[in-house]
């Protein structure tokens, strides 16, 4: 009798471990990333060259920082569509303040961060107080920021792009942190890639290993239950909105100091790209499920595809078609996961 039951137990543990790996939200994205990598590496020569790799990694890193922060917000059950425009707004704030008014560069950077945090807090406050879905509130914020980016920049500078950033005093110190290029064994690594990895590691640690992370899952998964067990639900969501806006600011700085200029149209048409990265990385649109690493992998897919299509000399409109298909597949896989987890409730 005892031997039989032990054997059965062992087998269950084995299958449990296997199932646990398959159940991870990032597994599907990792498989897709591997396929895309293999495809472009074997069909184009440029994709695997050192210049090629650093190009698609750089491209991925900018999407990645937003996708990871956005994934946390989505796991917490909310959206922020305005964060793409925020990258432009914060870049423009620093650009205009320094080139037009001679403000200290670090002061401008900090003021831009404060601005981003207050927009995040305002988004959170309005949607939590009124119960209007954050989708709508941040859609409004997106239009406000995009409009302001163009109108105010034109009003103050007469053009739609900021020039002369590299002549600003203290530019080099800021460039070292946000825009420098490191060299690893002959490969140029933009510092934004380091930021992307750091943000992913920190976000993943917070999500899986801290109380805050547990609360984020709780708030997004079952709001009322979370409140019943004493989680400060409003604070958690407020923090998530502000962190997402801060990520928008970080990407704004990475872009500004990466190329030494900023356009008033920065972020236009990018509202959904980070949402796509997060969903492809295994986040549920309904909240309560997902992973920071998954979102980073989602961004890697986005970056590899974006640049891979250029290297393969295809018409770049294929990108949107491809991402659309990928998004649909990811949503269907996620739906299956959710059904499996909730089918007995």
């Amino acid at each position: 009798m005892t031997t039989v039951s032990t054997q059965k137990d062992d087998r269950q543990i084995m299958s449990g471990r296997f199932a646990r790996i398959l159940r991870r939200p990032e597994v599907g994205a990792a498989v897709a990333a591997l396929l895309i990598f293999t495809y472009f590496s074997s069909t184009t020569t440029a994709f695997l060259s050192t210049a090629g790799v650093s190009t698609w990694l750089y491209s991925s890193s900018l999407f990645g920082v937003l996708a990871v922060a956005g994934a946390l917000l989505m796991i917490g059950g909310e959206f922020d569509l305005s964060v793409g425009a925020m990258t432009g707004t914060t870049g423009l704030i620093v650009g205009i303040m320094t080139t037009e008014y001679g403000t200290n560069i670090w002061l401008s950077i900090i003021l831009a961060l404060i601005f981003a945090l207050s927009i995040g807090a305002a988004n959170a406050y309005i949607s939590m107080k009124t119960g209007v879905p954050s989708f709508i509130v941040t859609l409004a914020a997106l239009f406000i920021l995009q409009g302001a980016n163009l109108a105010i920049t034109k009003l103050l500078t007469g053009t739609v792009s900021i020039q002369g950033m590299s002549d600003v005093t203290g530019y080099d110190s800021a460039k070292a942190i946000f825009g420098s290029t490191l060299n690893f064994g002959g490969m140029d690594i933009k510092i934004s890639i380091v930021w992307w990895l750091a943000v992913t590691v920190v976000a993943s640690w917070v999500l899986l290993r801290t109380r805050t992370g547990n609360w984020i899952f709780g708030v997004g998964g079952a709001f009322t239950s979370a409140r019943q067990v004493g989680i400060p639900v409003v604070k958690v969501r407020m923090g998530l909105f502000m962190a997402t806006s801060a990520a928008g600011w970080l990407v704004g700085m990475l872009q500004l100091f990466g190329v030494s200029t900023v356009q008033a149209t920065t972020g236009l048409g990018q509202e959904f790209s980070y949402v796509i990265c997060a969903v492809v990385g295994g986040c549920l649109l309904t909240g309560g499920y997902g992973s920071a690493i998954g979102a980073a992998v989602g961004a890697l897919i986005y970056g590899m595809t974006l640049q891979g299509i250029v290297f393969a000399q295809w018409d770049n409109n294929w990108l949107k078609l491809f991402l659309g298909v990928l998004l649909l597949l990811a949503v269907l896989v996620n739906l299956y996961v959710r059904r499996r987890a909730g089918d007995r409730s």
Binding site: F217, G221, A222, S225, Q228, L284, G288, A341, G342, S345
Partner: peptide
Amino acid sequence: DLAVVPLM
């Protein structure tokens, strides 16, 4: 409603 979060 047990105050549980189904997906956790």
